[in-house]
Design a protein around this nucleic acid. Sequence first.
DNA 1: TGCTTAAATATTGTGCGCAATATAATTGTG
DNA 2: CACAATTATATTGCGCACAATATTTAAGCA
Lengths: 157, 157
Amino acid sequence: MTTDDDQLLALDSQLCFAIYTANRAVTARYRPLLAKLGLTYPQYLVMLVLWQADREGERVRVSDIGQRLRLDTGTLTPLLKRLEGAALVERRRDSRDERVVSIVLTARGRELRKRALAIPEQLMCSSGIDPQRLGALREELRSLLAELDRVDGSSAE
Amino acid sequence: MTTDDDQLLALDSQLCFAIYTANRAVTARYRPLLAKLGLTYPQYLVMLVLWQADREGERVRVSDIGQRLRLDTGTLTPLLKRLEGAALVERRRDSRDERVVSIVLTARGRELRKRALAIPEQLMCSSGIDPQRLGALREELRSLLAELDRVDGSSAE
DNA sequence: TGCTTAAATATTGTGCGCAATATAATTGTG
DNA sequence: CACAATTATATTGCGCACAATATTTAAGCA
């Protein structure tokens, strides 16, 4: 009922709010650049998965993307249909297992990678922030995520 | 076209992806706890703003919440209507300036704070992560945000 | 083989975020 | 005072996220 409580529920003392706000601010930085490629930010992430697998000669199923980005089909199915509508990918039912849908890049989708290469450097680098510090921040976030994965959230919380 | 490029577009080397994923993982932790209070995560943030202002005896307009959370009316108006539907707040047109809508807590909305107090400690603390490290991470994110605010994003990016 | 169970994707519905536009009230200016 | 410009909020539309459920196909088993 005192200052302790006030501090406990203060926005600025909460990590979640810092992550929430930083996430939207960073995404907002990407938006105009990605718009030039005709992509939203989540679509860009899917393309990153596809480009990476393409270089490694790996086949990509919907569930592979879901696992990598931690997204379910409720998000991915319509998103992939939009990418297909933009002629960046094709969705193919696997003939061996008709449940599986493989996502393959079109020539256009593969081409787009070249233009995407310019994005990472343009963003953070030109923002004049120490790259080393950004790398450290990224690793801290990854370790937070790993810790959240490790500890079951459904107990006593 | 070589390993450098691969690394540049690799998901795991991008800060944005780490923030994106951490944000959703943290929000997912809050979800079951907030569900008990009948709140979504953004609604919880709005309530934090309102509780804080309430204790400081300050009047809160829609635009105040928007400024604090960096959200526009396209997000806030329907959200606030839902909070009003849940009888947690009232929306009142200011009689002096009819453009302004003030958001005031109902008794029920003020009461809810007591139950919300349990949330912050339950979450991160019980996840067994070093609080000092979480605080440092939070400050790094805040400084990233401040840097993004400082540097105009519309130039050369 | 028939039947149950599991797996992969799709669909539906709700609630954000955000861009673009609209509406209404106030302020500033001649 | 009239009227253009500004301010505060609302509305519309699109694309995520995510829960819940449905559909289709494959595997396992008596």
